[in-house]
């Protein structure tokens, strides 16, 4: 349970964000929930890409060339999995784009309807 607490924290963050995305009527609150969901998924990926094995070391000390991979497996050489970091770097950029477009749509909705409540916007006609 303690060894997997990072995954559990990611899952709890996912539930919190999904709750805000579904239940909260305010549109900006919904977007905050969407961002929390995205960051929880990134936390899950990053946590699964880290191979710690006992010691914490800095990544950019010697991570480029591993002379003896046996020592890396034993936790004597620093290494991480670079694939989740690269994927998450791309995904963060896309999440910024999604947030920007969604916020501009929210501003446009406010200019048209005069409210931010999703239920009022759904009940109003055109």
């Amino acid at each position: 349970m303690i060894a997997r607490f990072d995954y559990i924290a990611a899952v709890i963050l996912f539930s919190i964000g999904l709750y805000a995305l579904v239940v909260k009527p305010n549109l900006i609150k919904k977007l905050i929930g969407l961002n929390i969901i995205e960051t929880s998924v990134y936390l899950f990926l990053i946590a699964s890409g880290d191979v710690r094995l006992g010691i914490y070391t800095n990544q950019w000390a010697a991570s480029n060339v591993i002379d003896n991979p046996q020592r890396a497996v034993q936790g004597l050489e620093p290494m991480i999995n670079p694939i989740p970091s690269a994927l998450v770097l791309t995904a963060i950029v896309v999440s910024v784009c999604v947030t920007a477009i969604a916020l501009s749509v929210v501003v446009k909705l406010y200019q048209h309807y005069g409210t931010l409540d999703a239920r009022e916007i759904a009940s109003l006609k055109g």
Binding site: Y113, L124, K125
Partner: peptide
């Protein structure tokens, strides 16, 4: 530019409903 510096926005219309 797109978000902050947009001035002179039209007021929300009261008769939209």
């Amino acid at each position: 530019y797109a978000f902050v510096e947009y001035e002179g926005e039209p007021k929300p219309d009261k008769e939209t409903e």
